[in-house]
Design a binder for these strands. Sequence first.
DNA 1: GCACCGATACAGAACTGTCTGTTTCCATCT
DNA 2: AGATGGAAACAGACAGTTCTGTATCGGTGC
Lengths: 191, 191
Amino acid sequence: MLRNEQTALRDHVLNIASSLFYAHGIRAVGVDLIVAEAGVAKTSLYRHFRTKDDLVAAFLTCEDEQFWQTWQEVADRNADDAWAELNAHLEWIGSRLARPNYRGCPQINAVAEFSDPKHPARQIAATHKAEMRRRLKTIAVRLNSDRPDELAGQLALLINGAFVSAGMLAPDEAIPLLQNAARLLRAGHTS
Amino acid sequence: MLRNEQTALRDHVLNIASSLFYAHGIRAVGVDLIVAEAGVAKTSLYRHFRTKDDLVAAFLTCEDEQFWQTWQEVADRNADDAWAELNAHLEWIGSRLARPNYRGCPQINAVAEFSDPKHPARQIAATHKAEMRRRLKTIAVRLNSDRPDELAGQLALLINGAFVSAGMLAPDEAIPLLQNAARLLRAGHTS
DNA sequence: GCACCGATACAGAACTGTCTGTTTCCATCT
DNA sequence: AGATGGAAACAGACAGTTCTGTATCGGTGC
């Protein structure tokens, strides 16, 4: 019970901080704002997170896990058809760009905000992006690509490009743009 | 003469600030650091730039102009061949990712750092990205694309994706990855 | 009674932007 | 040629805020 309340408060602070970090940027959000929005004392925040950087790392780790959870659910629904799986991924990713408060990929944004390669945020982001390419490569292999690593890299560029190009695309444009591009890239990779 | 010294000092401050903004992020760099690195008085900075945001806007505008200047030089060298021009663009853009202190596209990074759509940095970045798609579309038209606007969008996704994916790519991987992708996309767009 | 929480004050640093002096230098006037 | 005035720069203190992180104290529920 105590344990539950403890983790409940920790999760509450993390959820509020995550929303603020994503909406306004990590450096733009101070701990004073976080505790005010969460309605908790600053002491409580620092009881569960040793520093702000620890809170940032927890935010990015959480986003990473949620992303792969969604990915996995879509993958499981298309376990028998790699091509259908890829298109399904492009669909839910593309649909995110049209969400009202969309503000890019948290990992990419974190890399833009923190320049030190040793910063935990950078390392979590790097792992996240490497994992994305790894998963795309397994799909490319199942698609019988001639050079699956290259196809995976190209698909990753498209996806990362979509993440940072929402402001350049019309609301309903992203999904067909991505899916058509994937179709053409795949066609060129299976001779 | 007086006029020259004024603009020389303004440019000096802007150059130092630009280097620091790009290397460490805009919010991470304070005006105290800028004036210390530039070796000028804070009063001098505020004589030429009304606020820090004005300095940030000047930074992004300058980066924008330099980017299109390089683009235009490459375009002029390939005025007779749109396909050669596109590949030349992908080459110099891809080669940037391998530069030692590469830290992404300044415009994309600025969008990650500032959440307010009305912030001058966001507007300069939005204009920059719209201009990129516009120029790519003129190339797509010259390539006889069936849907030049879509091809331009796909190429823009690839390029923006490359900007934010340098950490995911091997040093010599970006250029062939981009050029092969462009080849396949183009082939699918000219039936 | 004890562990947790909220509230609050605080320390120390960094931030943007202002203000006051002093120095330098060049153009102009005598 | 030498004096004068004005523009621009430097140096540095300063105000007011915000930032991260700590310390203290009182309340509350198990």
